[in-house]
Design a protein around this nucleic acid. Structure first.
Lengths: 117, 117
DNA sequence: TATACTAGTTACCTCTTAGTAAGTAGTTAC
DNA sequence: GTAACTACTTACTAAGAGGTAACTAGTATA
């Protein structure tokens, strides 16, 4: 039974790497938004309606240091900034799909089993 | 461009359902641990070495109310309690796999690209 | 009688996360 | 000159997530 347990503990360690990147209220929403195309600061804000500029700015920086997204400044007037997924960010697509798939499944299950509400 | 944006916003709403269930430091680790077989309180604690009994108890309750896990009490001596995944909890297997897959990919990328450290 | 096992609970404290509101800077249009 | 657009930043505050340590309860063993 010790070998089985080592496999479990190893997986728990790997999961922590992923969790450190996606943990928090806003990181996955930002990644999902950018998964639908490169976007400017204001466009992301309009997708995620209840995020404040402070949190968006802060989380974009965190995702940039984790090499998930890239910031590109365009010298237009007024200045525009475009955010896009890096290849590493794009490699999360399957993970995002599973989050969405399970979310749909979860909602269906919850609605089916609860006659109340 | 409005249709594309509506799809994006809809996905963001679905993602929130999933995030509400898995958000936090300990929920996914607990689910991963139980994905490797039914376990007792103490066994989960031994898998996730740095979780405190308070947090484990608290998060197990949250997962139970979300119908992800089940608590079964055995009237042995001393009393033992077994936690197991519900069908809904088991339906997260694909999602867990993607979290692990991406964690492995992320670690490989980080080690490859950073010559420092 | 004291220790150990099971599975937790409780009180208190700290630290991080997130929210609010206002301000900044550069350019353009009225 | 004033408002509006871009993309933020800053300071202050509130909430809650999580950590620590000690305690509970029931049974069994030395």
């Amino acid at each position: 039974m010790n070998q089985k347990n080592d496999v479990c503990r190893h997986r728990l360690m790997i999961a922590r790497d992923t969790l450190e990147v996606i943990q928090g209220k806003w990181r996955l929403p930002i990644i999902i938004s950018l998964n639908h195309g490169n976007k400017r600061f204001g466009e992301i804000q309009r997708d995620i309606t209840d995020i404040s500029p402070k949190m968006l700015s802060q989380e974009l920086k965190a995702l940039e240091t984790n090499k998930i997204i890239t910031r590109t400044l365009y010298d237009s007037m007024p200045v525009t900034v475009e955010y896009s997924l890096t290849p590493l960010g794009e490699s999360m697509r399957k993970l995002l799909d599973e989050i969405l798939n399970w979310g749909i499944h979860f909602r269906k299950e919850i609605l089916e089993t609860s006659i109340d509400n």
